[in-house]
Nucleic acid binder design. Sequence first.
DNA 1: TAACACCTGTAA
DNA 2: TTACAGGTGTTA
Length: 273
Amino acid sequence: MPELPEVETVRATLEPVLTGRTITHIDITLPRLIKNATVEAFSKALSGCTFTAVGRKGKYLRLCTDGSSDLLVHLRMTGSLIYDAAGNNRPKTAHIVFHLDKGLLYYCDVRTFGCLWLAKPGEKTGISGYDDLGPDANSSAVTADYLREKMKASSRTVKSFLLDQTVLAGLGNIYVDEALFLAGIRPSRRCNHIGKERTQRLAKAIHTVLAEGIEYGGTTIRDFVNGSGREGENQENLAVYGREGTPCKTCGTLIKYVKQGGRGTHYCPHCQH
DNA sequence: TAACACCTGTAA
DNA sequence: TTACAGGTGTTA
């Protein structure tokens, strides 16, 4: 479900309502979602803690507390975190319920791929995947020069390169396909065969599609909702993702769908080379 | 680098 | 009935 713009939308909707709220107790009906603590340790570490901020790194949410541990969350495919001020609207798929001094925070997940961890405050958490993240894909660290250095040395396809969270954090299947369309680059192209000018276009395209995704509150194809339970609007703006068989918005050629590296991949055979 | 695994729901 | 889905970690 969620890539950087979706996770950022969740962060932005949760931070104002969660900051200052205190966890009284936690109901856990699916313990395996908690990856680095027992149910008992998890509940004990967080109960009584007050949320101080909601952060994001790549596709990870970090709910900071005034206690000895922060709560780290990855939504994977279908996870969602929803704040319910009235506390009377528990979704069927809520597997973990944080009871707060005012309202409830639900962790919901249809496919139950999501992950929750206790994280010690500070940069390094010991959680692999999180500690290894590259710079945020929408940050100023992701420049044409940064990409160029990495791409020159890589014979991978540009799609698999951009999906690698250790290279840059936050891109997923939708925004990679969209960025490559904007940059006019085929997903199957090898990184080291892409020149300087096209790399510049790619860097710019990544920032453009992510900024637009955030501006429109994320992309809802099926499941995505923000921290208030509302869907995004960015699906209206997609140029290629999910548009296979329909005309390219630029040239009218039909958008193609192929499997690449196990992922559904969408591109315009006329505009992208 | 590709297949498979983790799961459930929906659409073809 | 089968294929597929905003992700990622492990295995051949």
